[in-house]
Design a binder for these strands. Structure first.
Lengths: 336, 336
DNA sequence: CCGGGTAGTGTTAGCGCTCACATATCGCAC
DNA sequence: GTGCGATATGTGAGCGCTAACACTACCCGG
């Protein structure tokens, strides 16, 4: 177990140069003769040398690691985002260290961030969809590159976010365009910014069309809560169109409507949000809004890297527009 | 950006002790007077000192980081596993660095492992469900603590795995017990060990009951492929019971059956695998097999830690039994 | 043929920590 | 008191690397 691999000096000795030259080769420094470079590379290969990230991090003060703080990475959205972040980071030569948190309160977030800082991560991406998370972030040392995803739009922190409002507006408008008088909404938790944004977009679209938004049904992202809300909606004959804040809620609603014998889309039209891979196989296939997680990840990582490189911590923000994916769960309202 | 935080010597100076004593307090070394310990802690708090993981990793040769190699962390299974691993690792004071891979071939796996080694991770967990991954692992330096999850049962590598065979057998038996003559199977890719294990369990149960297994329908874990297989099954009147290798496949099958007007469970019974949170809200609620991801994660991390501590690399293996969750998608076969 | 740039390389000094060991301090039996 | 083990603390070295600077060739114009 104890067998430490070769160090830079071993490579240097084999190549007949100084360790510093090896370092230069490794870091792509220009002033190295081609022939020397080759010799060094050969020595590296021969010894199976692997640079020691810890030593490098110690001397430079930063490791090639990006810390990600996220909650509940089991949900489709966060999981996709995490995977995409990892992918993009890897392309840029960075590893990703996850610090998932059970609860999104100050303390948990701060603790997770602390853990990352203690490893001297180069920067931190916080997937911070709730109010309380924002506060924790403002207390942070200012010298740590930081990007929040789906965080608080009102805080002066670099932010990348899916345009929840536009997505929700598109979904609602789509239903209105199909001829529905109004659209009901089963929301996510309202203390989540994405939940709040979707509520706002829904309300916007309705108001713009001159209709008074019906009462909101609040869920918690789960199919279970969608089911509960669906049971209420199913019993109200005037309901003909529903927009749910995510696809899992839609699944729950779908099942409730089914149990009450209300057909989708003949009697009730439904639109979800997220475009989980299964959405196309719901009964019926679900019309939904697809956020581009890859784009979010790319934007986040690049924003973070530019902070790392430049040292500036400008409070940039970038918004990624989602797209509506039309499938079979929307139709014109039934004639009465 | 450059403002480095206080170092151990700063704390030491403030507390009026040597840096070594600070180190002892930090590492819970016994021989420190209570009063000194308190003074040091106070100094740490006052300065907002945070130990430098890189420096520690450099001198000890190991960081407090566990590397995880996984593919497609968007799928429910891997995502849950990853989250659970992270949780357990955090409880043990370890961070988790993810290296996700696009493809599960030697090269990708090796590259991901290399990246982790270069950061001097304390150990590596490989979620390696396919054949080719196993080969890559045998080439690895022997001195790195390593645990595979859902890997090749035949390789001499420490392994934690869900008992796929038992789970599949239970699912199949459950259908047989309900009175079905035989059970059809929509499988995952057969080069995935979990896919293969589920096929084996299904076949076992059938054979034990003295029935010849019907032809296998091979899918790829996705609802889309489940749908395609479902279209075939729906047209065969003799099919009354289907076991799918995961819940997404089941969803696809469900939709196909629905389109063909074949009612579940009245005409056809269905059992899935994974127990995704939405399974209870399928139409009808899906009977499925639930693997205990937390238990898998716990077993993996503990196996890894014991390797790290003891230095021994025995090829242990541990199997986690899944449980059947009965819901509404199973009934007795229709009378003909 | 000399001064001064520039490409290529070596030397040295830490980064912040832990380990091994040296030293100081204490308690207690005699 | 003295001696001795246990307890508490300090000292020095060095982990593997990069940054800064020092040095050596060599090329060039004057």
């Amino acid at each position: 177990m104890a067998v430490h691999g070769p160090a830079m000096t071993d490579v240097a000795r084999l190549a007949g140069v100084s360790h510093q030259t090896v370092s230069r080769v490794l870091n792509g420094h220009p002033n190295v003769r081609e022939q020397t470079r080759l010799r060094v590379r050969a020595a590296i290969a021969e010894l199976g040398y692997r640079p020691n990230g810890a030593a490098r991090a110690l001397v430079t003060g930063r490791s090639q690691v990006i810390g990600v703080v996220a909650q509940n990475t089991t949900l489709y959205g966060p999981a996709s985002l995490l995977a995409a972040l990892e992918q993009t980071a890897a392309e840029e030569g960075f590893a990703v260290s996850v610090g998932s948190v059970r609860d999104l309160d100050h303390r948990s977030i701060s603790a997770a961030v602390e853990r990352h800082l203690s490893h001297r991560v180069a920067g931190i991406v916080v997937i911070a969809p709730v109010e309380s998370a924002g506060e924790a972030l403002e207390r942070l040392p200012k010298d740590v590159p930081l990007v929040t995803v789906d965080g608080d739009p009102r805080r002066p922190v670099p932010l990348v976010t899916v345009d929840q409002v536009a997505g929700a507006r598109a979904a609602t408008q789509h239903l209105l365009d199909a001829g529905h008088r109004t659209v009901w909404h089963v929301s996510g938790p309202s203390d989540w910014f994405d939940g709040a944004g979707r509520i706002e977009g829904w309300r916007d679209a309705l108001l713009a069309a001159g209709v008074e938004p019906p009462p909101l049904l609040q869920g918690d992202w789960s199919a279970a809560s969608g089911y509960r809300c669906g049971q209420m909606l199913a019993r109200m004959p005037e309901v003909t169109a529903v927009f749910t804040a995510n696809d899992h809620l839609a699944l729950g609603v779908l099942r409730a409507l089914h149990e009450f014998g209300r057909r989708v889309p003949d009697e009730i039209s439904l639109v979800g949000f997220d475009d989980v891979p299964e959405a196309a196989y719901f009964i019926p296939p679900l019309t939904t809004v697809r956020p581009d997680f890859d784009a979010v990840a790319r934007a986040s990582i690049h924003m973070l890297l530019s902070q790392i490189e430049s040292g500036t911590g400008e409070a940039l923000r970038q918004t990624i527009a989602p797209t509506l994916v039309a499938r079979d769960s929307v139709a014109a309202p039934p004639r009465r």
